[in-house]
Amino acid sequence: MGKLAESSDGYDKHDIRPYASLANSKAAVLFIQENWGNRSGEFNSNYHGSKRQSDSWEMTVFSTVKEGKVTLNWNGLFELTPTNAHGRLTYAENKTLDSRTLKRLQLIDLETLEVIPAVSAEGELNSYEFSMGADKTSRQFRWVLGPINASHFDPASGAMKYIKEHQPEVLRQRRGIKKGGKFGLPPS
């Protein structure tokens, strides 16, 4: 996730889809876009335009490990410098831990409503540990860049709607069952 000058808040070429649905993976972090029309779905990345000082990204953590502990950690901020090489725009990465942007970034657990700053008061990168619970396979989070307001605590309803609507399709894909079909792959 991040902000790029040539990105938009909707779908753009920097928003990358996984090769197959990851909603029933042992563990996965996805950005689910329910309001992108025929481009709606699961994404490994979500880049927004760079014009606004404040922004937010909804992400979903999936795990099929019942009551498993999950730790979210981040290893810094990568500032991207655009370079035009032979008519093709590329980006050079520069990892930084001392960034005004990183200090303004916070994670909200949309279940517990806990707010976790990306960086501690001592300047160290934070992490966040939680348990999925016995009957859950997904959990919603929101990254917020800038001041947090009441709307940032609203549930990620678009992602949950997408998951509920596509869950049977995702399960069929994982089991090798075609829509309307009766047989899956042989047991492994």
Rank of each mutant, 00 (worst) to 15 (best):
R174T: 11
E165G: 05
L77I: 11
Y19N: 12
G41V: 10
V29D: 00
K13P: 03
H86F: 13
G10L: 04
N149Y: 06
I108M: 01
Q106N: 02
V115Y: 01
L4H: 06
A27N: 09
E124N: 12
V29F: 02
A20F: 04
A20K: 09
P147S: 14
I163Q: 04
T137Q: 09
Y47G: 02
L97D: 08
D135G: 15
F43Q: 01
E67I: 11
E165D: 06
K3N: 11
R52M: 14
P18T: 03
N35M: 11
F43R: 02
A5I: 07
S7R: 02
W57E: 01
Q167N: 15
K51M: 14
F153D: 00
V29T: 04
Y47H: 04
S120Y: 06
E67T: 13
T112C: 03
A159D: 00
A23D: 01
N84K: 01
K103C: 07
K51N: 15
K51P: 07
G181E: 05
V70W: 03
D135E: 08
S131M: 06
S138R: 05
L125G: 10
G133C: 03
R139H: 02
T83A: 07
F43Y: 02
G184P: 07
W143K: 06
T101K: 13
K13L: 15
S99T: 00
E42L: 01
S45L: 03
L80V: 01
Y19S: 13
Q173D: 09
N35F: 08
S45Q: 05
S50G: 10
N46W: 04
D9H: 11
T60S: 05
Q167M: 14
N44I: 06
R104Q: 12
T96F: 07
L80Y: 12
Q106D: 05
G87K: 08
F31L: 12
T71M: 08
L4W: 04
F62Y: 03
L105F: 02
D98M: 10
K161V: 01
L185P: 14
S8L: 04
S157V: 14
N24E: 07
V65P: 08
T90E: 15
W36E: 05
A118D: 03
I108Q: 00
S56G: 09
R104N: 12
M132S: 03
T101L: 07
K179V: 14
A85I: 15
R88C: 13
